[in-house]
């Protein structure tokens, strides 16, 4: 039986060891979480090997011939054994709980000094993310972080529940309409990652993603400077259709060659926009159910863009669409 148990243990251990179970570790939170993950994994592997070992051994050893009419040994119980298999699991679950609670507390701790971390406001809407950097007075469709600097993300949602998840950071948090939620990330590895929405939020859910870049100090400063320059050029209050398209998340569902988007949830704008009047385009944005393109369903596109975008932004967006997609007239 010990042999079978060991064999089961080796198989389980091999599955655990040789398959790369977890994504890259790119934050201090990932280190904390992976520590618990492997602690629990070892306990589970041992328990499973024990159960598998005993069942296979018992099935092999105590198998009765088909015509056997005898009964087994009338064993009704064994108090000592029952105490052991109540006590040992209790100790194990307490150990796992304590480690988990400590790891959780450490993962979510921010430095006491507010200068040592940044706060970023994350807003989720069907089906796009936007990130506001209050210190930089900047809003972007991409999350940009400085390596080794803790960030506090304050999340909310405009319409339904969404969830913010970057597998390499391990951290996940729902963005909930009506309240603010919070999570903490300290990125440790430069690179590009994806924010993945993990709470079902409607037909665009599978494509609701945004980019994350973790930059070195120098690159981060350069990105900050570029933003300030851009803000200076653009001028106050003037909306730019191309950035409205990006920030409102249109590209999550619609193909538009100029914006580089290739999504297929909604109609391909390069083919439906040509030949449409500006008023017609505006109606399609603010009241998507007014006219549904053939082959598409009503109630898929959110109907609240009139509230989400200002009049100037809507006009800029329509003008942009006419300019880049409506050329075939």
């Amino acid at each position: 039986m010990i042999v079978i148990g060991l064999l089961a243990g080796i198989v389980t251990g091999g599955v655990a060891y040789f398959i790369p179970w977890l994504p890259d570790q790119a934050s201090t939170q990932a280190e904390e979480i992976d520590g618990v993950y492997w602690f629990v994994a070892i306990i589970c592997a041992v328990v499973f090997s024990l159960v598998a070992g005993v069942s296979i051994y018992a099935g092999w050893k105590f198998r009765a011939p088909a015509d056997d009419m005898d009964d087994g040994s009338p064993i009704h119980g064994h108090t000592g054994l029952e105490i052991w298999w109540t006590a040992v699991p209790t100790v194990l679950v307490v150990a796992m709980s304590v480690w988990s609670a400590v790891a959780l507390a450490r993962a979510e701790t921010l430095p006491d000094d507010p200068d040592e971390y940044t706060t970023i406001e994350v807003t989720a809407a069907q089906f796009a993310w936007s990130f506001t950097y209050p210190e930089l007075e900047r809003t972007d469709g991409e999350l940009v972080l400085r390596v080794n600097e803790p960030v506090e993300l304050i999340l909310t949602a405009n319409d339904v529940i969404h969830a913010f998840w970057v597998p390499e950071f391990r951290m996940k948090q729902d963005a909930v309409p009506g309240i603010e939620t919070r999570t903490v990330i300290t990125p440790t590895k430069e690179g590009s990652y994806d924010v993945i929405c993990t709470e079902l939020c409607g037909p665009g859910h599978p494509v609701m993603r945004a980019g994350v870049r973790v930059l070195s100090d120098a690159d981060y400063e350069a990105w900050v400077a570029e933003g300030e320059q851009g803000a200076g050029e653009g001028g106050e209050g003037e909306a730019d259709g191309e950035s409205v398209f990006a920030e409102a998340g249109c590209g999550s569902c619609h193909t538009l060659a100029d914006a580089g988007s290739e999504a297929e949830i909604g109609p391909d704008l390069d083919s439906v926009v040509p030949g449409q009047e500006e008023q017609q385009i505006l109606t399609s944005i603010v009241d998507p159910n007014a006219e549904i393109s053939e082959g598409y369903q009503p109630n898929v596109m959110p109907g609240d863009y009139e509230d989400r975008l200002s009049e100037a932004e809507l006009d800029a967006l329509v003008a942009y669409l006419v300019e880049v997609a409506g050329a075939r007239r």
């Binding site: 979480i33 618990v36 993950y37 629990v40 994994a41 306990i43 597998p167």
Partner: peptide
């Protein structure tokens, strides 16, 4: 049990 542990659940939920 994995899912019951809060830190692991944060990742795999």
């Amino acid at each position: 049990v994995y899912l019951g542990s809060v830190p692991i659940d944060i990742h795999v939920s």
